[in-house]
């Protein structure tokens, strides 16, 4: 019977040594592939409803999970009706991150109709102090704060709060990566915070006390509040609906009586009547993006918010701050 020593000598004999190394190499590659396949199989598939949430989640998870938009590129989330193909895709998800306060009500219908009606939901806004909706959004239900403004994603502060909430909840679902999600969330929060600090740093002084602003769509209250500005009036009768001539006249009279100096219009929904307002009232117009169009990318939110912040800074500077 060969002893351990003689066995070792035989194995490490030159012709056998190559075979052993080859065998070990094959085993290692196979083990690595198995681990990788297991990792792939364990990767969460996270559904998102709106472009900003794609960016939030993509920055939190990196390549540790897959981010899947519920609605395809090119659809307006304000008017989206669930399609059969999209509902089928919902059945393949592990969790859905929702705005949940009025901007993606279609998500509940999609989940209920999917193969997984019990799909977990992450309420991104659970820790965000919400503002009551204003203007057309409150029609029929009163202006008592029951209907909230769902555009929290157009604010840096509210976005950081949502990123933290999403990271915490994803960590509960995927404890192996919880620390990575938390670290990434913090890093992304710093990036967003810097955008706001840079924008405010470009303002030599605070906006003038008499700077009154209006918006075409009631989406920018959270964003403008970060500059200490309040929205005095919202112009459009309903989202994407152009005012009638009499409504337009009433709006222009209202803007004049309220001494509105700046209107933030919609970059994504350009309308001819906005030019009429500018021409007739002399109010300055600045377009902001709602971040709801185009491809879903990880850096979309940063880029478009940087542009929005630049626009607000320019509006304040040109108004004489």
């Amino acid at each position: 019977m060969p002893t351990f020593l003689t066995l070792s000598r035989r194995l490490f004999h030159p012709p056998a040594r190559g075979l052993v190394i080859l065998l070990v190499g094959v085993l290692l590659v196979a083990a690595a592939s198995a681990v990788q396949a297991q990792e792939q199989a364990k990767r969460l598939r996270i559904g998102v409803t709106l472009h900003p949430y794609y960016s939030y989640v993509a920055n939190i998870v990196g390549d540790r999970a897959e981010v899947v938009p519920l609605i395809p590129v090119g659809f307006n989330p304000h008017a989206y009706e669930p399609q059969a193909e999209d509902i089928r895709r919902v059945g393949t998800l592990d969790v859905v991150v929702v705005n949940g306060i009025g901007h993606d009500d279609f998500a509940d219908r999609m989940i209920a109709a999917s193969d997984r009606p019990d799909l977990p939901i992450i309420e991104a806004n659970a820790a965000v102090p919400l503002l009551g909706a204003t203007g057309a959004a409150t029609r029929g239900v009163g202006d008592d704060g029951k209907v909230v403004n769902p555009h929290t994603f157009l604010s840096i502060t509210a976005s950081i709060a949502q990123v933290n909430t999403i990271a915490k909840e994803l960590g509960r679902l995927d404890p192996d990566h919880a620390q990575a999600y938390r670290d990434n969330a913090r890093k992304y929060g710093r990036t967003l915070r810097k955008l706001r600090a840079d924008a405010l740093g470009r303002l030599a002084q605070a906006p003038a006390d008499d700077l009154r602003v209006a918006t075409i769509h009631g989406a920018y209250d959270y964003l403008l509040r970060e500059f200490g500005l309040e929205v005095t009036a919202v112009v459009e009768p309903a989202h994407g609906i152009e005012p009638s001539p009499s409504q337009l006249k009433a709006t222009m009279d209202q803007l004049s009586s309220l001494d509105v100096k700046v209107i933030f219009s919609e970059l994504d929904f350009p309308s001819a009547y906005v030019d009429t307002i500018r021409r007739e009232t002399g109010v300055r117009l600045y377009p902001l993006t709602h971040i709801s169009h185009g491809e879903y990318t990880a850096d979309k939110y940063e880029k478009e918010m940087a542009r929005n912040l630049d626009t607000v800074v320019r509006a304040i500077q040109e108004a004489g701050a």
Binding site: A127, V128, P129, L130, L131, G132, T157, A158, A161, G228
Partner: peptide
Amino acid sequence: ARHDLTPAEQGIYADLRV
């Protein structure tokens, strides 16, 4: 926070939370 704070207080409150 939603009904009783002034707009400026709401902004500061949101900032403090994050």
